[in-house]
């Protein structure tokens, strides 16, 4: 099915890393020029190459929307599902195959609107998977409708006089869910930070939720202009257990030491609207992970039949 398969077979005889980032891409993404999805795909490819993940041992699950085309472009198993429902599919897959690396890619409409129920509950289930919310503040594929994360006053085809409500903040919402174990924010215009955040999310055991701020070149090209043009309007959350990358200190002068284990502070920071904050808001590896706590030991066919016989004895006439 894939040309990569050949090189992978060769790989068994070669100790050195043999999959490059581009080996993880199947074809060029059919996104508009300048779409933030490309940046996310590049960061993911880099991560997969760094981790040398075997393409057949991972799965990318998505819903519907521009960003949900993501799995088609990754050399891995993929499930391009239905709108808003990536997380139940991914949860089922992870329960079935805990050994697979599962990645979920959703847009803001997908995750925070039609799929909001699943988002809350998947956060609480806390299955071990890396979850990317590609948040461009707008419905792109359906051509420019207001999404829950569209800033108040921002015009779209469904709110021509500007969005009438304050935007929903996915960080606040996720941090409010019990058993949320990893919540981070990064941005498409800071690729080094995006990559480092992705790595931290991948390394985390649990539901690693990353909101990636990105621009839609067609409908929200300017939505993050304030932060992009004024790097001092951005504050990096840093910590020995957080994310950092070379060169970021030159770009962003505002740095806040924030212990990712401090949930109260994480919630307080997510609440504040003074600066745009990038980094790990919260991370705790000690929370129950659904696919681990629900793991069941396999039972042989013979054993099952023996048990069924006993069970049926109870119902015997």
């Amino acid at each position: 099915m894939s040309s990569i398969a050949v090189s992978l077979l060769d790989c068994e005889f070669d100790e050195s890393k043999c999959l490059e980032a581009d080996d993880y891409q199947t074809r060029v993404g059919k996104w508009c020029a300048g779409c933030g999805d490309f940046g996310a795909l590049n960061a993911v490819k880099r991560l997969l190459a760094k981790e040398q993940l075997q393409p057949e041992k991972m799965a990318f699950v998505s819903g519907i929307g521009c960003s949900s085309r993501f799995p088609h472009y990754v050399n891995a198993y993929g499930f391009h599902g239905i709108h808003g429902r990536a997380l139940p599919i991914a949860t089922g897959l992870k329960l079935a195959r805990p050994e697979l690396d599962v990645f979920v890619v959703m847009g803001d409409g997908d995750c925070t609107s039609i799929g909001a129920g699943h988002w809350i509950h998947a956060t609480r289930y806390n299955p071990n998977m890396t979850v990317l919310l590609l948040d461009n503040n707008i419905y792109g594929l359906t051509k420019n409708q207001t999404s829950p994360t569209t800033p108040e006053g921002y015009a779209s085809n469904t709110s021509p006089r500007g969005s009438v409500l304050p935007a929903l903040d996915p960080l606040q919402a996720t941090l409010g869910v019990s058993n949320a174990s990893f919540v981070a924010q990064t941005a498409d215009w800071v690729p080094a930070h995006l990559y480092a955040t992705l790595q931290a999310a991948y390394d985390h055991n649990g539901f690693s939720f990353i909101r990636i701020l990105q621009r839609c070149p067609k409908f929200t090209p300017d939505v993050f202009d304030d932060a992009i043009k004024n790097p001092d309007h951005v504050e990096l959350l840093v910590h020995a257990d957080g994310v950092d990358a070379p060169g970021l200190e030159k770009l962003f002068k505002a740095r806040r030491e924030h212990n990712p284990k401090d949930l109260d502070e994480a919630r307080a920071l997510a609440q504040r609207s003074d600066l745009l904050r990038l980094g790990i808001f919260f991370k705790d590896d000690s929370f129950p992970v659904y696919d681990e706590i629900r793991a069941v030991s396999p039972v042989s066919a013979e054993e099952k039949i023996n048990k069924l016989e006993k069970e049926f004895d109870r119902y015997g006439v």
């Binding site: 997380l87 139940p88 599919i89 089922g92 897959l93 329960l95 129920g117 629900r294």
Partner: peptide, 23 residues
């Protein structure tokens, strides 16, 4: 060796079953 997953709603129940079957 089996399990019951009580999902958050009917839709998710179908999704989890489908995702598990996919796996």
């Amino acid at each position: 060796g089996g399990m019951v997953h009580q999902a958050e709603d009917e839709i998710a129940a179908a999704g989890v079953a489908l995702g598990a079957s996919y796996g």
